[in-house]
Design a protein around this nucleic acid. Sequence first.
DNA 1: TCAATATCGTCTGTTTCAGACTATCCGGAA
DNA 2: TTCCGGATAGTCTGAAACAGACGATATTGA
Lengths: 200, 200
Amino acid sequence: MSSVRLSTTSYVVLGMIALRGPSTPYDLKRAVGRSVGFFWSFPHAQLYSEPKRLEEAGLLDLHEEQHGRRRKLYTITEAGQTALRAWLKEPVNAHFELRDIAEIKLFFNELVEPADVAKLAVDQIHQHEQRIAVYEDMRRRYSDIDAVSNRMVTLELGLGMERAALDFWRGVAAQVERGEFPDSRARDHKRRKTSRRRST
Amino acid sequence: MSSVRLSTTSYVVLGMIALRGPSTPYDLKRAVGRSVGFFWSFPHAQLYSEPKRLEEAGLLDLHEEQHGRRRKLYTITEAGQTALRAWLKEPVNAHFELRDIAEIKLFFNELVEPADVAKLAVDQIHQHEQRIAVYEDMRRRYSDIDAVSNRMVTLELGLGMERAALDFWRGVAAQVERGEFPDSRARDHKRRKTSRRRST
DNA sequence: TCAATATCGTCTGTTTCAGACTATCCGGAA
DNA sequence: TTCCGGATAGTCTGAAACAGACGATATTGA
């Protein structure tokens, strides 16, 4: 029940148990693998150690099952629900929580000569397609449940967001294919000018 | 010169030095703080330890300056350039590199009742605006240099991507404001139905 | 029946995190 | 001239997380 520092991974665990109900670490491992793992991946060993921490903090309840293989079944507590919801409501804080590899690669892309926009676009398209598949899979699995509202709102938002990104990169890819992209044009008139800097 | 494991942070350091030229850790700290730090943040102490590792791996050169305060000036080596470019070219691998907090929060958003789409949108809008500002700042700082091609291609892509996302979320916010969003409509006819599960 | 495969869980050295802490420099007020 | 505050610059450390090797138990079907 002592105060622990909760990481994003902690909230992923909390969130998964809140969504799925009572779960063993292995349940979580499989569920994470085909859903939220596409947005936040981590070693599966964490799914054994993290719930233990959360249980010690009073955010999960533990029910040890003692027949056959010893396994641990975790349930979320009231305190856990509260902590999770509080986190979900607060904005992403700028404090060591921002990490976006795709954007980093884009940021530094000017360093690869000539800028390989085509490859970049393909990479992004692939990633967004994958994420869309994750959301669509969830939608498929839940469409038979009658509680349409909250879950469906979320799924549609996720899909919408991913589709917007996908469209953007598909557009880029198409432009590149039609030779409309600046990098090919710019290359020849660059040759003449060398590393002159800051004339004004 | 031994082989070390390079993390994303390593590549950020390499990338910053490649972009800016010779830099001290403190230079990096400031530069990161107002640019790439918005996509990938980490404790500044890393900017002292990481270059040392990279230097030992032969990816950076060290020039110790010994007048006044002792400071270390790092330059990227050929090997460093090569490693960086190789990383930039390879697609984001699915192996512990995917981490997107905003998407996580969206994923679990159905758990906050009623789904607070408005707040979510505001958060996203803020974040994308901030990132747009980063790209625009870069563009402002570099627009006077005549090497238009690579850097400008990258900046336009970054801006385009962020604007697409921003537009999407602005659209969502507008819908919410006009009351067109499903969550308000869905709430009443949900009350009646309780936790029945999976009828088929 | 036992071998292969799938399921489930633990362990461990290394790296990173997060921020407290130390130290230096510089300008202006007392 | 010293003293103070703030900006600049760098170090240190305990606690987590990482990454994956490893160990153990079930299940199956030959």
